[in-house]
Simulated assay, not measured.
Amino acid sequence: MLYGTTRLVASAVGRALYRPLIEGVERIPRTGPVILASNHRSFVDSVVIPLAVPRRVRFLAKAEYFDGPGVKGRLSKAAFSVLGAVPVKRGTGRDAMGALEAGLDVLGEGDAFGIYPEGSRSRDGRLYRGRTGVAFLALASKAPVVPVALFGTERIQPIGKRMPRLSPIRVRFGAPLDFSTGYEHFQPGKARRVVTDEIMDAIAALSGQERADGYNGHGGAS
């Protein structure tokens, strides 16, 4: 109830201020588990996508957003909690596996789960190689993957800036990708790499971004 009311109010305000162009939202399944795999341009991406989608979308968020001190910390915790963010620690392989298990729990509950395969925000506008966590989720849950391309969010809150700015944005959703069958003959690691590359190709086709050869070197949830 709180999420629905907050989303309606925030979506109305956001649309009035930013007048976003939203394309292909009808491609997102209305019910059941689904993975939204997006490029990552800005801190605000995890706000923009949930406000553009007519069903609840949950993301992973740094645990620091939930346990910060003082008034700012409490406001941060309240905001991320209302958005349905899932707090995760970072830094070790065990933490990474815990994050993926949290994502599987969300999908197991029949919810939509948002993920950035690049791992963290692109600082130069290029689309980086995807990390295979998204494929782990897709193969383990059998949930469809909807590729997402964001445009202009990097201008709303550029890296290093505290206050958001007004700037036009666009959100484009692609056709769902089905990875529920057809990958059984691959070794697990190879299957995850192949699936991840297919997802990144779909994101690139939507976004038109220049592709980077390697991984984004700036780690961590953002």
Score class of each variant (00 low, 15 high):
residue 190 K to Y: 09
residue 65 Y to P: 02
residue 56 R to F: 02
residue 26 E to K: 11
residue 192 R to F: 14
residue 75 L to I: 13
residue 151 F to P: 00
residue 177 L to N: 12
residue 84 G to R: 01
residue 178 D to K: 03
residue 152 G to K: 00
residue 120 S to G: 14
residue 113 F to Q: 08
residue 126 R to I: 06
residue 129 R to D: 03
residue 47 V to I: 15
residue 104 L to E: 12
residue 6 T to G: 10
residue 51 L to N: 00
residue 179 F to W: 08
residue 46 S to K: 01
residue 157 Q to M: 14
residue 192 R to H: 15
residue 208 G to I: 09
residue 144 P to A: 04
residue 1 M to Y: 02
residue 149 A to R: 07
residue 137 L to Q: 10
residue 202 A to G: 08
residue 144 P to Q: 09
residue 64 E to V: 01
residue 195 V to F: 13
residue 53 V to D: 10
residue 51 L to T: 01
residue 14 G to P: 01
residue 118 E to T: 03
residue 206 L to D: 02
residue 134 V to D: 01
residue 113 F to L: 09
residue 71 V to A: 15
residue 174 G to Y: 11
residue 57 V to L: 12
residue 69 P to R: 03
residue 197 D to Q: 15
residue 211 R to E: 12
residue 78 A to N: 03
residue 173 F to S: 10
residue 89 K to E: 12
residue 69 P to M: 01
residue 216 N to I: 10
residue 39 N to E: 06
residue 195 V to K: 12
residue 21 L to P: 00
residue 44 V to F: 03
residue 94 R to N: 04
residue 216 N to H: 09
residue 55 R to L: 02
residue 78 A to L: 13
residue 66 F to H: 06
residue 168 P to R: 01
residue 215 Y to R: 02
residue 191 A to W: 07
residue 46 S to W: 01
residue 62 K to I: 02
residue 166 L to A: 10
residue 190 K to A: 15
residue 77 K to Y: 05
residue 113 F to I: 08
residue 46 S to R: 01
residue 136 F to M: 11
residue 165 R to L: 01
residue 197 D to L: 12
residue 86 V to K: 11
residue 217 G to P: 02
residue 145 V to Q: 09
residue 205 A to I: 11
residue 20 P to R: 06
residue 199 I to H: 11
residue 97 M to I: 14
residue 115 I to Q: 04
residue 208 G to S: 10
residue 7 R to D: 05
residue 2 L to C: 12
residue 182 G to N: 13
residue 95 D to N: 09
residue 145 V to I: 11
residue 61 A to N: 05
residue 121 R to D: 07
residue 73 G to W: 03
residue 171 V to A: 09
residue 135 A to F: 13
residue 129 R to C: 03
residue 201 D to V: 03
residue 117 P to E: 02
residue 30 R to G: 15
residue 50 P to W: 06
residue 150 L to Q: 04
residue 210 E to Q: 14
residue 102 A to Q: 07
residue 69 P to K: 04
residue 148 V to W: 01
residue 210 E to Y: 10
residue 130 G to M: 04
residue 113 F to T: 06
residue 151 F to C: 00
residue 41 R to M: 12
residue 47 V to E: 10
residue 13 V to I: 14
residue 123 R to F: 12
residue 36 L to P: 05
residue 105 D to P: 00
residue 143 A to T: 07
residue 210 E to T: 14
residue 70 G to T: 06
residue 190 K to L: 15
residue 196 T to R: 11
residue 221 A to E: 14
residue 170 R to F: 00
residue 40 H to G: 09
residue 91 G to F: 02
residue 55 R to F: 06
residue 105 D to R: 15
residue 130 G to E: 05
residue 81 S to K: 09
residue 74 R to A: 14
residue 101 E to S: 11
residue 37 A to M: 11
residue 183 Y to P: 04
residue 54 P to H: 07
residue 214 G to R: 13
residue 45 D to E: 04
residue 23 E to F: 02
residue 108 G to D: 11
